Structures are given as C-alpha cells and as structure tokens.
Simulated scan of single mutants.
Amino acid sequence: MKPVCVLGNGQLGRMLRQAGEPLGIAVYPVGIDAEPEAVPFQNSVITAEVERWPETALTRELASHTGFVNRDIFPRLADRLTQKQLLDQLGLATAPWQLLADASEWNSIYANIGELAIVKRRVGGYDGRGQWRFRQGEETALPEDCYGECIVEQGINFSGEVSLVGARSHDGKTVFYPLTHNLHQDGILRTSVALPTPNAAQQQQAESMLAAIMNELGYVGVMAMECFVVAEGLLINELAPRVHNSGHWTQNGASISQFELHLRAILDLPLPTPVVSTPSVMVNLIGTDVNNEWLSQPLVNLHWYEKEVRAGRKVGHLNLNDANPLLLKDNLQALVPMLPAEYASGIAWALEKL
C-alpha cells in the first residue's frame, strides 16, 4: 500500500492518520514549512487538509509531484470567485452574487440583491472570519483592501443549513452520506445532526449537484458541499475539497468514516456506499477545556485534538449515535450541565432534530 502524505498537520491530518492505521496505510501529516528532505513524499500519494497554502520549499517541491491528487483543483475552489463561477457554469443554484470591485458599486448592489449584503474575502477566511454583513449605509465599515478581493452575496432567508459529504473514485464512481443538518453560531459550526433516512428530495438534489461538480473537475476523494434550505430547494453556499467538520459524525455513525473514505478514494481502493443505520449528533468543542466527565455517558465518543485551548478555537468534538432515539436524547441532555452554558442552545436544537 502506498503511503499518503497530507499537506497540513492540523486535526484533519491527524484524523486521516488515525483512519489509515487499521488498513495498514501509513499517513504522514506534514507542516507546510517542513523541509522537503524530511518528508517521504517521493513515492507517496499526496493530499491536503487545507485548500490553500503559501509558497514554501515543500510546496514548491510538491507543485510538480505527479502523485498530488487534486493539486490543480485546490486553488480553483479556494478562491470564492472562481468557485462561484464554476457553479454558475454548471447551472447550479447559489445566492445571487457578484465581485465587489469598487465602493462606487454599492447603490447598484443593493438594487440588485436586496437590503442585506454578505461580503466574503475571495481567499482565506473561515469560521466567520473575513466575512461581513451590511445593510445600506453600513458598508462604510468595510476595510478598503477588500475591494477587488471580495465577493458580495445576497443575504438568504433560509429555514436551515445542510451539508452533503461525498466521495469520487479515480474511475468516476460517486458515493454519498445522508445529508447533515448543521447549526452555526457566529460563523462557527456548533452542532451537526445526521439521520439515516434524510429528506428524499433534498438528498437527491444534493447528490445530483455534488456529483456534477466532482465530475466536472475530475475530483478524486472526499468533498463537502454546504447548502441553504429554502422553499425552492437547496442553494449551494460553499464547497470544501477535503474532509469536513460537518462529516465528523461519520467516525462513529457510519460503517466507513469520511477519513477512511478519502483514503480509499485517493488510493484507488474499493469505494462502497457507507452504511448509516442510526441517528448521529456531533458537538464541536470550541475554546473549551477537556472534561473527563463527558465520558460518563455511554454514547459519548470524545475526539480531542491535543491543541492549546483558546477562545474560538476548535479543540475537539463529541460524537453520539444510537438506534434508540430516547437513549440518544438522554445522553445529549446529560451533557448540558457538563458543558459551558453556550452549548445548551445547540444541544436543544439537536434534540429537536432527532
């Protein structure tokens, strides 16, 4: 089995390494600043846990590596402008948008997209960073360096947010998990719920859209697609060409996790559709110290990233799944007094979804 080098050594690289161990796949997450001679990349398959990276000695070396899967796709999807252009090219539904080129455009922007504008940096920005919400007259607060470097979207009045995690093999086969319901607060994913029997129309629409995207790009591996739920169906919000936070529940709630599925795809191993037979809940741990009391609940699976705890930083997650929804709800409710108060609303939201 060929080894796999992961460009980036954060929690996603760590979980890819963990997924490779039972299959005998050596996975090496490496920092972008690593010295090339310290990385066993020559005979490896290369993947990445991040969409964009600076030029370093290592990334210069990998730029011509024939085993770097999706190498030329990453920059196209990392730029929100070229990502949106791809979706428009494929005729896939998104919020109305345009490039924000100059401050003189604001009057026409509000006339075209309505009273609420969402500004996003073309590159970088995540978990609510590099994004702004404006109503007419408030846009003067936007930093000058955003013009030409941001897109602006219509603020969408949505009833929910869902994501689809799927994978495509080298021969073009695609497989998907059930849709995941997501709750964001301050731009950060707080809680996810996946049900084994999703809304059939939404699942079909989402699978059709994500398959079209992956096939157009010739993408190989796991990709996540985040969508808004509106009366007409689903609107694509953003794409992530990698394993994704909203798919973490698959570690304990599916027969094959998203991390194993990605390794299977890029290494050209069999790619069956993962079996999902129970409801699952994922609770992101954000700026919260580890509490071993969480483990007193029999359904709680703790995934701790061993990172320094800082405000707003993802430091781990809790996965819970069971065929008995009452037991699942009891375990969720038992977590409330064990977590800071800001988690209560996310758990209450998950209980309503189950």
Rank of each mutant, 00 (worst) to 15 (best):
A57R: 15
I46T: 04
D72W: 00
P75C: 00
A38G: 04
W53N: 06
L77F: 07
L81S: 09
P40W: 04
V69L: 10
E55T: 13
R76V: 12
N43P: 06
E55D: 11
R71V: 04
F68V: 09
E49C: 08
V39K: 01
R71F: 08
N43K: 13
A63W: 00
E37V: 12
A48N: 09
T82Q: 13
Q42K: 14
S64V: 09
T82W: 00
A38I: 11
T66Q: 15
Q42N: 09
V39I: 10
L62I: 12
R80A: 03
P40D: 02
R76F: 14
A63S: 15
Q83M: 14
A63M: 08
F74S: 09
H65Q: 02
L58V: 01
R76Y: 10
S44G: 00
P54H: 07
A63H: 06
V39W: 09
D72N: 13
I46N: 07
S44L: 03
Q42G: 07
T66A: 15
R71N: 10
A78Q: 12
T47C: 13
V50S: 01
R60V: 05
E51D: 07
R80H: 01
L81D: 13
R52T: 14
S64A: 14
D79Y: 10
A78C: 04
Q83A: 10
A38M: 05
N43A: 14
E55V: 13
Q83D: 11
R71A: 08
E61A: 15
D72I: 01
Q42I: 11
S64R: 15
H65G: 01
R60N: 02
L81W: 07
D79P: 04
L58I: 06
V45R: 13
V50Q: 06
V69T: 09
I46D: 09
E51F: 06
D79M: 08
R52P: 00
A63P: 09
V69Q: 06
V50R: 14
I73H: 12
A48S: 15
V50I: 15
T66I: 11
P54T: 06
T59Y: 01
T59K: 01
L62Y: 00
T56L: 13
T47Q: 03
S44A: 15
I73M: 07
A38Y: 12
T59C: 09
L81R: 12
F74E: 06
T82L: 10
F68S: 02
D72T: 05
V45L: 05
P54Q: 04
T47N: 02
W53P: 02
T82G: 04
W53E: 00
T56C: 04
R76N: 05
I73N: 11
D79L: 02
N70F: 05
W53A: 05
W53Q: 10
D72Y: 00
I73T: 14
T59I: 10
F74I: 02
F74K: 00
P54R: 03
S64G: 01
A63L: 03
E37D: 12
A57W: 02
S44V: 03
V45P: 10
A48T: 08
V50W: 11
R60G: 06
Q83E: 15
P75E: 05
A78E: 05
L62A: 06
L81T: 05
I73F: 03
L58Q: 07
S64M: 05
E49H: 07
F74R: 12
T56G: 01
F68T: 06
W53L: 07
A38N: 07
T47V: 08
L62W: 08
P40E: 10
E49Q: 12
D79A: 03
A63G: 01
T82S: 14
A57E: 15
P40C: 13
S44P: 06
S44K: 11
